[in-house]
Design a protein around this nucleic acid. Structure first.
Lengths: 362, 362
DNA sequence: TTGAAAGCGCTAACAA
DNA sequence: TTGTTAGCGCTTTCAA
């Protein structure tokens, strides 16, 4: 009777249906679909047979009620038009997929009003939360964590917060870029920052400036690109129309560097690598396209993802070390958008040309 | 007692906890959190007060058990490096977000072996499934639908299947491109296709070829780019190193057109729009970047998304018309990568230069 | 190894 | 409008 109405209503089969058809108990069904539970081969076969006939698949949401594991992670990202993020989303999805997790997507557009997002997030009993959005407050992260949800701040950290985070060795990276530009005999520097509030951008900026100052060079002229393409276009124009425009511009991400590069070329008749040098940060997939040839500091995205997985797993086992802020190094990948120093360029293992710091000021 | 252990274990509060604190029944709690249920103002206030104190949020997975609505949609996409898809993902996420749905991400890399994906998908009780991946079989789509899950094939249809779909008016689009190129006095045509199996690509190719033939022009030389950047690079090289290379190349998507454009420029010294014409399909966000200026047929992505939402909703209400294959028109957006016809270019409402068919062959 | 029974957190039909 | 009650589909003790 119940079975019949199920069929009519096209309801998927449940463990009861399977149990009945197989002539066993629901527990037996549950066990055959549970890793490492003890079932006799005979029962297992009966169950699997019945399951196949009924096209039974365990309902993961129902399971999660009991097990308190949903195998779903939240992923909050802001703008997917920044080429860095689709790549990240893809990698996260693939790597987490391998260990049985799926990503529930939260796209956070710019303005975080007073966090309707927080409520949203916590309604799903997520096994973890990855915050890869520059527009997310660490307050939100803290709250989620307090609510018992493992959180990782991805490429966007709040140093004051104790939420675990994964990011690049920003200071080292920025010094490497500065070192490279100095070796290339640049004299006037521009810096296109992201947002005031963003610590990542700020760290890079400070390290970049400090390095130059330590070398007796002038501080870079600063513009804010707001992490957007349009913002970077404006910022670049502002820099290049100065009476004494910079001969090198370091952008705090590739998304903005690609804008800068094109503005320089299309609006100012400059050729990156010849009469203007532009360096980005991220090494987005399209940075090596022929028309860009962007020299940029690469983020070790594969490592980021691996560490993120580890953090989530440790959190779930309540074994996360306190205050875990992972900082992973990348490489300055040399292409054509910045003038080359006479020497010092080396070949990396994977055939890329990279830069190693030549000096260590102070 | 129970409350205490909850707190210690950092378990989120449940409706029972709230009910107890508010001095009402669980139903009252449920009702205050259910749109349009009848609760007195007084009870509601008590409940909301208690809920706030306990930081209570309804568990959506538990709710879905009873309501049979998860408010989660599956989204299967293949390669996010194709610039078309991040944009789609973002739009889908935002629009579905407005009506309370979230997207669970399934990234399907290339080879669909015998569908472990299918099992995966059906374990979650998704309210719907959007298949925006060229590597997904319509068999899978059919099976999901048979299992009672509303499905939409997004920009990737199987005409033989009855799974509802949303796509561009591919034939019209390809004829429009052909018409434009003929008006531009091109004589030798290349076509870079996606995959053999892909109907979208095939439809465009056939309409393109048929139009040219009907005009008494030679059929285009065909190359396969496999929808990948690398594939398109190869395809372009093959076309351009012919003794009689084409003077116009139509690529079945922008992802490949951007590859073609750069190969032409960097490897063959050709300047798109001057001595070679390249036209794409999709109008991806970066198509209008200065260094590309890609002339391309735009997909009406906002319409796509709107229709997708409608299809899912109708399916959920079991009111979906049979065999609903939506075909929506775009525009041929004229930029600089293809030589311009002397006349016939018009201005669209949003200030873009577009092409309207001048002839209707046959 | 197996089945009975209780319960995960929630909703909804029913009766009050 | 409210509370009682019976599930939604699953897992997991506990006894057998």
């Amino acid at each position: 009777m119940r079975n019949v109405s199920r069929r009519l209503g096209r309801q998927p089969a449940t463990s009861v249906d399977v149990a009945r058809l197989a002539g066993v108990s629901r527990s037996a069904v549950s066990r055959t679909f549970t890793e490492g539970a003890s079932v006799s081969d005979q029962t297992r076969r009966k169950v699997l047979g019945a399951a196949r006939k009924l096209k039974y698949r365990p309902n993961l949401f129902a399971r999660s009620l009991k097990t308190r594991r949903s195998f779903i992670l939240g992923l909050a990202v802001s703008a997917l038009d920044n080429q860095f993020y689709p790549d990240i989303v893809q990698r996260l999805s693939e790597e987490f997929g391998k260990i049985g997790y799926r990503l529930l997507l939260f796209i956070t557009h710019g303005g975080t009003g007073h966090d309707p997002l927080l409520d949203e997030l916590l309604k799903y009993r997520l096994d973890g939360l990855i915050l890869a959005s520059s527009s997310i407050s660490s307050r939100l992260a803290e709250e989620c964590r307090r609510a018992g949800v493992p959180v990782v701040m991805f490429n966007n950290i709040d140093p004051a917060s104790s939420v675990p985070s994964v990011e690049c060795t920003n200071e080292l990276a920025a010094r490497t870029v500065a070192d490279f530009l100095v070796a290339g005999e640049h004299r006037r520097f521009g810096f296109i920052a992201g947002l005031q509030t963003d610590s990542t951008s700020y760290q890079r900026e400070r390290a970049f400036r400090d390095f130059l100052l330590a070398k007796g060079l002038p501080a870079p002229t600063r513009e804010e690109g707001e992490f957007t393409f349009a913002g970077a276009v404006r910022a670049t124009r502002n820099l290049l129309k100065l009476k004494q425009p910079p001969d090198a511009i370091f952008c705090t991400n590739d998304h903005m560097a690609l804008a800068a590069l094109q503005v320089a070329r299309a609006e100012f008749g400059l050729e990156p690598g010849e009469n203007i040098s532009i360096v980005g940060f991220d090494n987005v997939p399209i940075a090596d396209w022929p028309c860009f040839g962007l020299t940029t500091y690469s983020q070790p995205t594969a490592d980021f993802v691996a560490r993120t997985i580890r953090i989530i797993q440790l959190s779930l086992e309540h074994e996360l070390p306190h205050d875990l802020h992972e900082q992973l190094p990348g490489e300055l990948i040399i292409r054509t958008s910045a003038r080359l120093p006479r020497r010092g360029i080396i070949q990396s293992a994977d055939g890329l040309r990279i830069w190693r710091m030549t000096t260590t000021p102070k």
